[in-house]
Structures are given as structure tokens and as C-alpha cells.
């Protein structure tokens, strides 16, 4: 697992990178009520706004952590956004992507570094 300063997690799975938000982020957001996902097949560039996540408090963006292509999105989240609060680092992944620059993964924190980042 790798973590971004934007509180996203990245997990390698079957050659793809799975992306979601951390438990810390979901706690800070509060109850999630709306999620907008990218299109499957969409080409993305690092730091593009690729998802919208709205909680009872505010709207936030999820930024693309890597260059690449979206290959699958978790449509179950659209119907049940509350999953992000229930299981943010498991069932509530946002999208799977193929990175075009896998080396970008090295920029991100490991679990110990992320834990110290969030204090």
C-alpha cells in the first residue's frame, strides 16, 4: 500500500492500481452522501480531478495519483455512498487504473510514513 498527501491509498492488484481514500480521510469528511466517478477508459494525468465526493459537510475532489487509464470504477459507491464511511480501505475502492508511469508510485508514502503524516 502507498499513500498520498491527499489521503488516497494505492494498492497493486493483478497488475492494476486500485485507488481509494483512507479511513482518516473518511472520518474527516463525515458521512458521505454523493460520489461521482470517472468514465472507464478515461485517460488521466496526475493531479487531474477525477472523482467528486460530497459529505454532509462539504464537496471535495479526488485527484488522479498517477498518469494512466481508468479501467474499472466501483459503481456500487454511487448507489451507496455510505460504504466510504463503513469500509474505506476495503470494499469502498473508487477506481482501478493502469499506470503509464509506474515510477510515480515511488513518490508516495508507505504506511508508517502516512501514519506519521496524519499524526
Amino acid at each position: 500500500m502507498k499513500y498520498t498527501e491527499e489521503h488516497e491509498w494505492l494498492r497493486e492488484e493483478d497488475g492494476l492500481i486500485v485507488v481509494g481514500i483512507t479511513a482518516h480521510a473518511s472520518e474527516q469528511l463525515g458521512d458521505v452522501v454523493f460520489i461521482e466517478l470517472p468514465e472507464e477508459g478515461q485517460e488521466i494525468t496526475k493531479d487531474d480531478e477525477v472523482c467528486v465526493i460530497e459529505s454532509v459537510k462539504a464537496a471535495s475532489d479526488i485527484l488522479a495519483p498517477l498518469d494512466g487509464e481508468i479501467v474499472e470504477v466501483n459503481t456500487a459507491l454511487v448507489e451507496d455512498p455510505g460504504k466510504v464511511n463503513e469500509d474505506p480501505e476495503g470494499e469502498a475502492w473508487f477506481f482501478k487504473m493502469t499506470p503509464s508511469e509506474p515510477g510515480q508510485m515511488d513518490d508516495y508514502m508507505d504506511e508508517a510514513a502516512y501514519k506519521s503524516f496524519i499524526g
Binding site: 480521510a25 480531478e49 459537510k57 464537496a59 471535495s60 479526488i62
Partner: peptide, 8 residues
């Protein structure tokens, strides 16, 4: 994630 609506 970038906050949009939270005020200062």
C-alpha cells in the same frame, strides 16, 4: 482531496 466549500 481539495476542499471546496469549507470557509476560512
Amino acid at each position: 482531496m481539495g476542499e471546496e466549500t469549507t470557509g476560512k
